[in-house]
Amino acid sequence: MIDAGARVPIRLVVNGRARELAVATHALLLDVLRDDLDLKGAKRSCDSQVCGACTVLVDGLAVSACTYLAVEADGCAVLTVEGLAEGDTLHPIQRAFVDAGAVQCGFCTAGMLLTARALLDEHAAPTREQVLHYLRGSLCRCTGYRKIVEAIVAAGGGDR
């Protein structure tokens, strides 16, 4: 048992870097990433797993970090938007978002990119249908989505 209020040591690999932290049982992964690790890319918006702004990948799986206990990530690899690029080289999905004009206010962007990354890991060249299926839980209020879908399809090498 881990007592209420007690801090549990956890080890995780965040964006390729091993981290050791002590977190409370009730600490949410989103807050740990943002506040303890200063990774502010993931955003809190709906706070109810509908919008996708807080999406990060835990062992490759997209999760809502706003509704995910940090202790669950113990022993896992966590990927956030800050870990998508390799140095100054953007990941193809980032490049595609820039080129397609798929970014406006940017508040949904991290979640969109990580959702797209998970999709591309599963289907290297996703169809438009597959993209729409994956984006069922990813909201954007600025772009009207057309350029986001276009960017993801393009990142997979599909038609623009």
Partner: peptide, 15 residues
């Protein structure tokens, strides 16, 4: 491309 695109796709843009 927008001038803030890179900071936004890399999560560096600050709100």
């Amino acid at each position: 491309a927008r001038i803030d695109a890179i900071e936004k796709v890399t999560g560096r843009a600050r709100y």
